[in-house]
């Protein structure tokens, strides 16, 4: 592959075309997800955190204390209303930006207790390109256009890089043995630093069966390091999205960690749900016309 072809591939990865319908679907989906995280999150319970236990994240370092419950509720109401407005397409760009900032502040406050929390970061980062998403979107325009494509594509690249970084730092700090040593046995046997396993029996079973633990380690590291392949190979996106969902569901079952925002954001962005729906409709129409049963098409 020549340098010119590599440059073209990278350019298309970021600035290539997508349909307006897909852009609209993902933008609304991210707005819903951010709204749910804002409204349903346990934030006001953080009010009253004693000063010695309050360690604000850098961009909130100007705060003297954890805000009061009233402030948390006010941010949740503003953010929730803004997210709803974005879903209903009322001033979508401004509404989305307000919801995103509210979510950033709330997640930042939750992370202002000493531990670096990643639970909300993938959604925040994957949503960031949509802060400048086109406000005028023709959802019935079947032609993929570059002005619709870049938020989706940049979001996908960000997601792929995040997973790759997670794998890269495993290699950097622990080496390849992170995957095939007894590391995963001990991860499951020790359990989470905070909270508890969603299914303690499964966590214990994995820990007591070395081959299961090692297989899961190889799966996780392999998935993370190879994730950038989805940037260039569209046909693998569904599989990587499903693997990511599987990873985060099993993470919750084994360690009780809340990575639901990751598990929903990844398939939302990676899978072209509009095209999948259209293919399903076409398959149904074809089946109805022919009166035969054919295998359902897969999404891509």
């Amino acid at each position: 592959m020549t340098v010119a072809r590599i440059r073209t591939a990278l350019y298309e990865a970021l600035w290539g075309p997508e349909t307006g319908a897909r852009l609209l679907f993902v933008h609304v989906g991210l707005s819903v997800l951010i709204g749910v995280r804002i409204v349903a999150g346990s934030y006001r319970q953080l009010a009253g955190t004693p000063g010695p236990l309050f360690e604000p994240v850098p961009f909130l370092a100007w705060l003297p204390d954890m805000p009061s419950a009233q402030v948390f509720v006010a941010i949740q109401v503003i953010g929730g209303v803004a997210a709803l407005a974005a879903v209903l397409r009322r001033h979508p760009r401004a509404a989305f930006a307000v919801a995103w900032v509210c979510y950033l502040v709330l997640a930042g406050l939750r992370g202002s207790r000493g531990k670096v929390l990643h639970n909300d970061l993938l959604l925040l980062w994957a949503s960031a390109p949509f802060l400048l998403t086109p406000v005028t979107v023709d959802r019935h325009d079947p032609v993929p256009r570059r002005r619709y494509g870049w938020p989706l594509r940049v979001s996908l690249v960000i997601i792929a890089l995040i997973y790759c970084f997670a794998g890269y730092h495993k290699l950097r700090r622990s080496g390849p043995s992170w995957a095939y040593s007894d590391n995963m046995r001990y991860v499951t046997l020790w359990g989470p630093s905070i909270g508890s396993s969603g299914w303690p029996g499964l966590a214990r079973w994995v820990g007591e069966h070395a081959w299961v633990a090692r297989s899961s380690g190889v799966f996780i590291l392999g998935l993370e390091l190879t994730f950038p392949v989805v940037i260039f190979v569209r046909g693998l996106r569904v599989w990587y999205a499903l693997f990511a969902v599987f990873l985060h569901i099993t993470t919750w079952l084994l360690l009780g960690l809340d990575y639901w925002a990751w598990a929903i954001t990844v398939p939302l962005v990676l899978i072209d749900w509009i095209a999948a729906y259209d293919r399903l409709q076409a398959w149904r129409a074809g089946r109805a016309a022919s009166g035969t049963i054919e295998p359902a098409p897969t999404a891509a």
Binding site: L161, H169, K170, S174, S177, Y186
Partner: peptide
């Protein structure tokens, strides 16, 4: 991401990166 430092929301994404024993 490449250097591996945290200044939330900037992060090194070091999720479970240290092997446990």
């Amino acid at each position: 991401g490449l250097i591996g430092f945290d200044a939330w929301p900037l992060t090194g994404w070091r999720l479970f990166s240290k092997s446990r024993g």
